[in-house]
């Protein structure tokens, strides 16, 4: 009966993942490997960026809006924020679907999201990346790594660490069923600063991590060390988010750009 319960929980988390995220690894890989009839529009210089803005992301950039005359770096930064806000919204709905999460203390739910969403976001972002670039605008565009690197500093420093993480993370060859449990484990983490009811969260965390371990053994029988490798990735993601938060603070201080109120809430007093 215990094994049946574990399988049910794993299935519930996987279903919540498929339901709540507009992009997943299976969809992204189909596009990135050229198995769709509509290949993504490639953004590789200022000209293709402008073309993409007029068609793919017109709503985000607000073609008639305030950003129209701003430099490319600021417009791209704004687009990244829009995507982040959407993903945070999706992650919140996903978290609410993880059994037990909604019965946690509401302030603890906020704390878990505040510290977990960016780690989860960067883990899932890897699905949309290959060594050459990143899918954008729901997979209708592909922005090249070289173009992102060619932007002026500090904006050029934004994505390269995520590509470096993604290349190592993608080498583990996780599928969406693995990622669903991994993302749930990121969110249900008992050592976030300021949690009130730690023991309640630790019980949830233990059951999710245990199910992740069993699932990996069954789904990847040829890689016995996948579970410890993934635990290491949790630490790597924490470091990646710390560096990202510092870069965003620097951009906020030195550049004339606004930060979305939801993202401000998350970054404020984070680390």
């Amino acid at each position: 009966p215990q094994l049946a319960d574990q399988k049910t929980l794993a299935r519930q988390i996987y279903e919540a993942y498929l339901k709540n995220f507009s992009m997943n690894k299976a969809k992204a890989r189909t596009i990135l490997t050229g198995k769709t009839s509509n290949p993504p529009f490639v953004i590789h210089d200022m000209e293709t960026l402008q073309l993409a803005e007029q068609t793919l992301v017109a709503k985000m950039v607000g073609s008639a809006g305030a950003l129209k005359d701003r430099e490319a770096e600021v417009r791209i930064f704004h687009c990244c924020q829009c995507t982040s806000v959407e993903t945070v919204t999706e992650l919140t709905e996903f978290a609410k679907s993880v059994p037990g999460f909604s019965s946690l203390d509401l302030n603890d739910q906020v704390t878990l999201l505040k510290y977990g969403v960016y780690e989860a976001l960067f883990a899932m972002l890897a699905s949309s990346m290959n060594k050459d670039g990143l899918l954008v605008a729901y997979g209708s565009g592909f922005i090249t790594r070289e173009f992102l690197k060619s932007l002026r500093r500090p904006f050029s420093d934004m994505m390269e660490p995520k590509f470096q993480f993604a290349m190592k993370f993608n080498a583990l060859e996780l599928d969406d069923s693995d990622l669903a449990l991994f993302v749930a484990a990121i969110i249900c983490c008992g050592d976030r600063p300021g949690l009130v009811n730690v023991s309640h969260i630790e019980v949830m965390q233990e059951s999710i991590v245990h199910i992740l371990q069993l699932h990996l053994l069954a789904n990847h029988p040829d890689d016995a060390f996948l579970f410890p490798k993934l635990l290491q990735k949790l630490a790597d993601l924490r470091q990646l988010v710390t560096e990202h938060a510092q870069l965003v603070q620097e951009i906020k201080k030195t550049e004339d750009t606004s930060l979305h109120p939801l993202l401000q809430e998350i970054y404020r007093d984070m680390y």
């Binding site: 829009c82 959407e86 919140t92 906020v110 505040k114 939801l262 007093d269």
Partner: peptide
Amino acid sequence: KEKHKILHRLLQNSTSPVEL
């Protein structure tokens, strides 16, 4: 609570959109 009012709102109300 005031510090994280959008996160609170998202957690309590799934239909509330976040303005981009």
